[in-house]
Write a protein that binds this DNA or RNA. Structure first.
Lengths: 139, 139
DNA sequence: GTTACTGCAAAGCTTTTGCATCCCT
DNA sequence: AGGGATGCAAAAGCTTTGCAGTAAC
């Protein structure tokens, strides 16, 4: 266990940001997290270990990590921003009933007909698939 | 011109909602609008003609229209909700520099490999293409 | 020793709500 | 006439900001 922590500190040091206990707790929580948590989710979870953790610090840290490209911000939820530690291009599958969001790691080669490109130089894409999960369907 | 207004009132009456001057002004403004306006945008625009228009009324009307399926809500902009009078499935092309949003009306046949579907029944999808528009590129 | 992060509180935005009044249908 | 829409103001989120104190480098 101790060695895991050491490995992680090394990894987190590689982000280049100044490491504080608060930031380590945030990095530890979001690392590999597949729940697309909001700032409030992160604050709530991390507060259990570090009760002093302030929500403002969470927001400021997320902003820093986003600018350095270590996390990405999702505009999937109209009510609040969600964050994703996976910065590789990927897509999302959303249950329209329970709102859960699942990663889709498949490569989808998408292209727009030239005549619709309006002179844009396309740099990326993101697909949201909508559907009903099996749990919601069985109700 | 007068006949156009009559035609439009007929069309708007078909929405089934109770028509008030405020609602007509909102419907007229968003009808065919390609700017994906926010509630504030709509309020600002409509206020020029109807200074009494309240922002709360705009929100309530948009909520009503959304529930009846006459407009759709976009989660593209993390700062505020935007609305789209086009409820047919379509996609969006977003300039990462100036943030303008353009409709892409093309049919894109997208599918997820079964093994990644997690038991979901897929009902729809929405693609965001990112790029740089020609105006931004020439700077 | 500097630089910059933290926590708090306040402020800023967007969106929602309660309620009395008013107006479509 | 009745039900629902309007406008106002207040409240309720979510997110940002300023600042004094403190910790990482």
């Amino acid at each position: 266990m101790k060695s895991t922590i050491i490995v992680n500190i090394k990894k987190y040091r590689a982000t280049g940001i100044k490491l504080t206990p608060q930031r380590l707790a945030i990095l530890e929580y979001i690392d590999g997290n597949k729940n697309h948590p909001s700032a409030e989710n992160i604050h709530e979870a991390v507060s259990r270990k570090y009760p002093m953790m302030s929500l403002a610090t969470v927001y400021k840290t997320l902003e820093t990590l986003k600018h350095r490209g270590h996390i990405s911000e999702l505009s999937i939820d109209p009510k609040r921003r969600r964050y994703d530690p996976d910065t590789k291009p990927h897509h999302h599958l959303i249950c329209i009933t329970c709102k859960q969001i699942i990663d889709i790691e498949a490569e989808l080669s998408l292209s727009i007909p030239d005549e619709l490109k309006e002179g844009f130089e396309i740099t990326g894409n993101h697909v949201e698939f909508y559907g009903i999960c099996s749990k919601c369907r069985s109700r």
